[in-house]
Design a protein around this nucleic acid. Structure first.
Lengths: 322, 322
DNA sequence: CTGAAAGCGCTTACAG
DNA sequence: CTGAAAGCGCTTACAG
């Protein structure tokens, strides 16, 4: 920056003001500075400006993994908004228990970002408390944490719509698959299970514990065991409601390789509207995944600019799809 | 850090040395400093240390998108290595032409990371030159850029193995789908096309231009048109070799919805070993996607530590799979 | 509208 | 083994 100042024949203060677009710079000075900056292809040191302003111009995302359709799309939405705002995207992926512990212990994002988006479900109270120690706004994505900035759909309603769809098809024994990770993080909000129970109740059907399973979803074995369990019941279900399409697709794969006709002998319902859902004839409760990421990033931005702007956002309702 | 120093009754220099793990600190001093740091739950300001050292302890990844299986897994591999090294991951996703232009124009990663991993294919010479202006090591991922640090498999060989598999099955008219993005970035190395051509040549089969297509892969329409084109040929192919499983899966979906029996009337071969390949009965040329990401991150690390360490890495060869 | 100066929170020779 | 001091490259009152 000193070089630019020298070349333009002004002080570094003026260069700084010009480059930040402050209006208190005369047009001709601005011109000279911009020219000098271009000629030297100057890039500002964010480290230096962060040191002064306390702003990093980076947003962190905490995610249990990067290689799923759901989170890939969510983060893609986040990324788009940040790019427009010229904010950088820092990704912390926490894929097993050791990493989960280390993350909350060290909090590497501390002093390293202006806000954090959390795409994991089911943080412990201790973990949530640790996030407060981050000293930055935290936005919860795709889940509703009361009292905290959250971007979410109505998962209870979504699950109810899905359930009603299955009930309309005549199903009375419906299994529900809530799944988790190696980290112990669940894959979706527990609200979907609430919607499942609520619909059963409304329909006057019993809630049967043996129909609700919590497989570890990232290993095919987990799904295989869960499906095996369901098939081995004396009174097996005729439909499976998976909390996400990625789980539903695995379920279909397992059923198929077990020679179980889908949907003849077993219907499968998903949640999300995965881009392969149509092609696989998977019925699903659609939600605007990328929009949720986008909205979360926008919420983070507005909170950074104005810490009071903690308006809670709800994205459009879930809806059935074919 | 001044607070920690005061609490421990030492100078900030000593705190700095202790926290960086330098050995020139006496055990009892170290103990006091660590205690003080813990009590104050001190976190170092990376901005301040970057300003002095010139190191950001961040690695940037340039990617054409985040929501594909291939790049999700690649970046997951990168992420794992960086986490162990306590390096942060900065993601620049460039999903259309405007963003592509803006990225190479502004180079937001400049002065903002210690190295960059490039997961896009087919950068123009100008873009490649711009990357030199980054002033940081650049590692090419999943492609071989001669003279540059690159992590890649032998794509020619991989494609040849795939082609031989199809030839062994008796196919003589084999289409090849190389696909691209909205950004104009290709989805895989052009070497695969080379392998395709080479195998045809070896087998004494003609190279037929109308069998080689370049659909825009992110829109189903692109795939649909490509498949439609192939089916409408007077002498249609009996097999399609897609340069990636994600494209292959889309192709299968389109064929299926067009009532074309797979593999009865048309065989489909992919590349990557997508986690759904088995379940969809997709034959594929396997490559260790996550390992490639991991290796790229490790290469970047070693280059940062020692700029001479530009050893070129080749990951294990591709191999056929079920 | 512009500049000189202080200061952000670290690291790093330099002395001791 | 430890400390005082300079300096990294910016921004921001403060003066003018």
């Amino acid at each position: 920056m000193a070089d630019v100042a020298e070349r333009a024949g002004v002080s570094v203060s003026t260069v700084s003001r010009t480059l930040r677009g402050l209006s208190s710079v005369s047009p001709q000075t601005r011109g000279r500075v911009e020219k000098a900056a271009r000629e030297l292809s100057f890039a500002i040191s964010r480290s230096a400006s962060s040191l002064v302003t306390g702003k990093t111009r980076r947003i962190a995302v905490l995610t249990p993994h990067l290689d799923s359709w759901f989170l890939g799309n969510t983060i893609a939405g986040v990324s788009g908004v940040l790019r427009e705002a010229e904010l950088d995207l820092l990704v912390y992926s926490v894929t097993d228990l050791a990493e989960r512990g280390a993350f909350f212990d060290r909090l590497p994002a501390r002093r390293n970002a202006d806000a954090m988006l959390v795409t994991c479900f089911d943080l412990t109270p201790e973990e949530r408390a640790r996030l407060d120690a981050l000293g930055m706004p935290v936005v919860f994505v795709s889940q509703h944490v009361p009292g905290r900035p959250s971007v979410y759909i109505d998962d209870v309603d979504g699950a109810q719509r899905g359930m009603r769809h299955l009930l309309n098809l005549g199903h009375r024994r419906i299994a529900f698959l809530q799944s988790s990770d190696d980290t112990g993080f669940y894959w979706s909000s527990k609200e979907r299970l609430t919607g499942y129970r609520k619909t059963l109740e409304e329909a006057g059907l019993p809630y049967d514990e043996e129909l609700v399973l919590y497989p570890v979803a990232r290993h095919r074995r987990g799904i295989r065991e869960a499906v095996g369990h369901l098939l081995s019941l004396r009174n097996p279900p005729t439909a499976v409601f998976a909390e996400s399409d990625e789980v539903a697709i695995e379920v279909m794969g397992v059923l198929r390789s077990s020679g179980v006709d889908v949907p003849g002998r077993m219907s499968v319902l998903g949640f999300d509207d995965h881009h392969l859902a149509e092609w696989l004839d998977l019925t699903t409760v659609a939600q605007p995944v990328e929009d949720i990421g986008r909205a979360a990033a926008e919420l983070a931005r507005s909170i950074i600019d104005d810490p009071e702007a903690c308006l809670l956002y709800t994205s459009p309702s879930p809806r059935d799809t074919r």
